[in-house]
Amino acid sequence: MPTYYEDIEVGDTYSFGDRTISKAEILEFAEQYDPQTYHVDEEAAEDSLFGELIASGWHTASLCMREFVEHVADEAWLGARGIDDLRWIKPVTPDDTLSMTVEIVDKRPLEDDPTIGHVDTRLTAYNQDDEAVITWIGLGIVARRDSDES
């Protein structure tokens, strides 16, 4: 059953994840989309600011988005207006296991379109040591129930 705008309350929280990221995944993503040396070359990474191979922040964000879609964004979630306040807090390294928390931080109806509402979510992902690694505010668009169903 879809989670419509009317079903969502500010303060609602969802927790999910336990997704382990492998060295092979880090390398594959980085080679295709973000080939900076500390993402694709273990030796070069050792001499970098990070001191070891790390996942691209875009890889981490993509992984979190996948988990969000699988655990929160059902068919009533129609898309997004963007993301605010994206922060990569701590590097993700091979064999890190990520879990996520999503909190509803704001919601408001659209007066000029009664079929949708805006729902803002704060996603934070944590590694296996409970350290935050990434956070953002997602600016979601969620379907409203038909007025005759309410």
Rank of each mutant, 00 (worst) to 15 (best):
M100V: 08
L49C: 04
M100Q: 04
S147P: 15
F68S: 06
E103G: 05
A30N: 09
D120P: 01
R87G: 09
H59G: 00
Y14R: 01
D84A: 02
A30Q: 03
R145M: 15
A76I: 05
E111T: 13
G117R: 01
E25S: 07
I104Q: 04
E111G: 14
L86D: 07
A80P: 03
I104H: 05
W88H: 14
H71I: 08
E28T: 12
S99F: 00
G79P: 04
A45H: 02
G57P: 14
A45G: 05
H71G: 01
W58R: 01
G11E: 07
E25T: 08
D47R: 10
V40Y: 09
S56C: 13
T3G: 05
L78H: 03
L110V: 10
P94I: 04
D130N: 14
A125M: 08
D7R: 01
T13W: 06
I83L: 14
W88Q: 06
L98A: 09
I21S: 01
D18M: 08
W77I: 12
I54V: 15
K107S: 00
V102A: 11
L63C: 13
D95H: 06
R66P: 06
F16T: 00
E103R: 11
I21V: 14
H59N: 08
E75S: 15
S22F: 09
K23F: 03
D47A: 13
G51C: 09
S99M: 00
I116E: 14
Y4A: 00
I21Y: 03
T121F: 10
G11N: 10
T3Y: 04
I141K: 03
T124I: 13
L53D: 02
D85T: 01
G138D: 10
P2R: 01
P94V: 07
L27M: 10
T101C: 07
A132W: 02
V142M: 05
A44M: 08
F16S: 01
V92F: 09
D74S: 03
L78F: 04
K107C: 04
W88K: 05
D41H: 09
Q128D: 15
V119K: 00
T101P: 03
E111H: 07
A61M: 15
A44E: 12
A76P: 11
I8Y: 06
D112F: 10
S22E: 13
L27V: 15
W136Y: 15
G17R: 03
A76S: 14
K90H: 14
D7I: 00
E46N: 05
M65R: 05
L123T: 15
V69H: 11
L110C: 10
Y14P: 07
V72A: 11
A132S: 10
Q32I: 13
V105C: 08
L98N: 03
R144L: 12
T121N: 07
D41P: 11
R66L: 02
T135R: 11
L53K: 00
L49M: 13
I137P: 10
S99K: 11
Y33R: 07
T3I: 15
L110M: 11
R122I: 14
E28G: 00
I104W: 02
T13P: 02
R87S: 14
D18G: 12
D41N: 14
I8A: 01
P114K: 09
I104C: 12
V92S: 06
Y4R: 00
R122S: 12
T101V: 07
H71M: 04
E75I: 12
L98W: 04
S147R: 08
E75F: 04
